[in-house]
Amino acid sequence: MLSALKAEFRKIFSVRSTYVIFALSIVLTGVFAFYVDGLRAGDTVHDPGKMAGEVVNAVNALVTLIALFGVLLVTHEYRYNTIMYTLTSSKSRTRVFVAKIIAISVVAILLSLFFSVLSPSFAYIGLKLKGLNLVHQVIPYHDLLWRVVFTGWAFSMLALIIALIIRNQIGSVASLFLIPGTIEALLGLILKNNVAYLPFTATLGVIQHSSEHHLLSYSHEAIIAAVYVVVGWIIAWMLFLRRDAN
């Protein structure tokens, strides 16, 4: 199991796309947190929840990019046919499956935490450079911490599941960008408040409520998202075991 896990981490950190996505995420954080919310900040300096808001914004904005790591980890294997090496090196396909889940979980959680610290830090530096001082900030550390970790992790898991089911790189990336932002938003027109029960909406609802009325608590949204993740794992695992590796 450890060898499979080591191989998955090596896969992630030995391709150019990893560093490109990471750099892009930092640039986006710089633009929105440092420039927009820092250097060009207006009245928001009087908001006691500004820094907490920066954390929420960072996770909301970057969760899709973070999820790309999982999508690419899986789809690169099929696109370049390295999956044949991966599967013939391991005693069982389940080990490979679990290793991918663990590797992406670790990456997703660490990156979510990293950007949830980087974004408010950038905003703070921007404000200081502009000579502004924040009012006393109220930051619910524990509440924010589990919501950041869960959202980053669950969103990446859903993306990983999509990639494991679709396997095609273009199809998986397109789905990652279309399902949360477009398809679930369109379904929201029909489902109204029940949109909160859709997988990506529920996941993002953990970091920021999915409806104005706050019908579901953060923990309820987390439970809904977790159910989708577990069911998705089971479907993806069964397909991973049974399908031809190509």
């Binding site: 896969k11 030995s14 391709v15 150019r16 796309s17 690169h76 370049y80 046919n81 390295t82 044949m84």
Partner: peptide, 8 residues
């Protein structure tokens, strides 16, 4: 050609 092109 079963390799990632950007992985050495």
């Amino acid at each position: 050609k079963a390799f990632h092109p950007t992985r050495t």
